[in-house]
Design a protein around this nucleic acid. Structure first.
Lengths: 252, 252
DNA sequence: CGGAGAATTGATATGTCTCAACACTTGTGG
DNA sequence: CCACAAGTGTTGAGACATATCAATTCTCCG
């Protein structure tokens, strides 16, 4: 309960102002569609096809987890009150905070596409969230599975993509960032049916640097360093990966 | 055409392998819904309510821009061939690359919510993209503007949020990152009707550090530095911003 | 061939990480 | 009530990595 990893679980540490007192359980409240709209500040129409549905609320004590990495996607959540943090825990044990969420924020957006949550969300204070169940909106065969649902799915995938990109830049050392960038490129090429170990980069060193938050000289040096280690071969923009495993395992 | 800023516009620099030759204009091809599905690798159903629509294709020469920052949202794009980069240009002129896009990737996802593109997309090689027009799916009053559309909108907002968070960490100096973080928090509090100049942080220095990709000590030092400059006042987790303008303008 | 951007490499400056010590806050148990 | 424990937060000194400035080579194109 108090492992260094679950640093979110602590005695309700300090006292953030405006935190709702931890009282009156009042379990299983229901929330109307119009309140969800109000919370999201959604400006458009929202004429539910069905007779106005209601959504289940869920209370969460400070430090508790709403969902975990790898857990099956169960739906989206809208924050009604409180503050939460969403983190990705890397294999080495380092935590990367993706976002801090407040009233009206959406949680779990990357799950629509992946059918699993890619990150873990902790309550920083006592919270109330509203659940938009996956089954009702994203299971196949439901009414209205048109192009809009596909677009929704695709946008959700973008959320995950940006999250991955974001995570790459959280590596401390520049060589690790470049290594991860190459792995990412390799996987994307593989997904399109091209060679994962030999491909051409279409962007300049400057672009790579602007993507990884380092200077172009540092990118160049990192590529040279990985070459020295016999992990890759670089000829201008042509990249040959000698050991994809070594590249994946590379952590400095 | 060759300002340092538009570094994407260059003579078709080097020769990436597998780049389609720049030939046969064949303007205004049309693409079927099923090809869009195939490109996206969308696994779900997609029974268009209408009789299978077709989508316009758009060719883009290497170096050209698909859409610009601040431009009105005109629709989403799916990459059919080629590679593109999406960048955000900061006021100081520095470019931050958000993503490199390949076949099957979605472009413009943050626009659904904002009605404007928040970034600029350049072709790195000659490209073909497919346009999913905004009017057909995201204008108010169209058929099927139910909860799904609201969810789509909310997920799109998440894309923008993550992009902003991503951008914060691209500031070189840690003090600037912390300053931007405080501005972000301030604006979020303001949006909820709370004071933008005095609020309590609900997260630890460690969490802030994990969000900004710096150590907790560096966060602490940065807060102290901003205090020395009389820009903020820090008392544990209580933050008082003396000059929000100074905080916004702070660039080291 | 000459020009311009791309890329590599080196030397130095600067900023952050790391390790460490210490003060503060909060909750617990004597 | 006080001491104590544990996590939080601040500050300092030194090691280390990246940014910066600069020089050079390479590639491609006019």
């Amino acid at each position: 309960m108090t492992t260094p990893h679950m640093s979110g679980v602590q005695r309700a540490a300090y006292v953030p102002i405006r935190m709702p007192a931890r009282h009156v359980p009042m379990e299983n409240d229901w929330t109307s569609l119009s309140e969800v709209r109000r919370l999201l500040k959604y400006d458009g129409h929202c004429s539910a096809n069905m007779h106005d549905p209601t959504f289940r609320r869920r209370r969460l004590q400070a430090g508790r987890s709403l969902f975990s990495m790898g857990q099956e996607f169960g739906g989206l959540y809208v924050v009604r009150s409180g503050t939460l943090k969403t983190v990705v825990t890397h294999q080495e044990g380092t935590e990367h905070v993706i976002s801090f969420s407040m009233q009206g924020d959406l949680l779990g957006a990357e799950g629509v596409c992946e059918h699993h949550y890619w990150c873990e969300t902790f309550a920083l204070s006592d919270c109330e969230v509203i659940r938009l169940p996956a089954d009702d909106y994203f299971s196949p065969g439901r009414a209205g599975d048109g192009i809009e649902r596909m677009i929704c799915w695709a946008i959700s995938r973008e959320v995950g993509r940006r999250q991955s990109a974001y995570a790459i830049t959280h590596a401390a050392k520049s060589e690790v960032r470049v290594a991860r960038f190459l792995v990412e490129q390799s996987e994307r090429h593989a997904a399109l049916g091209y060679s994962p170990t030999r491909f051409a980069l279409t962007m300049t060193r400057r672009d790579i640097g602007a993507y990884l938050s380092v200077t172009l000289e540092t990118v160049s040096r990192a590529l040279s360093a990985l070459h020295q280690l016999h992990i890759i071969e670089v000829a201008n923009r042509e990249i040959t990966i000698h050991s994809l495993d070594a590249l994946r395992a590379f952590e400095g």
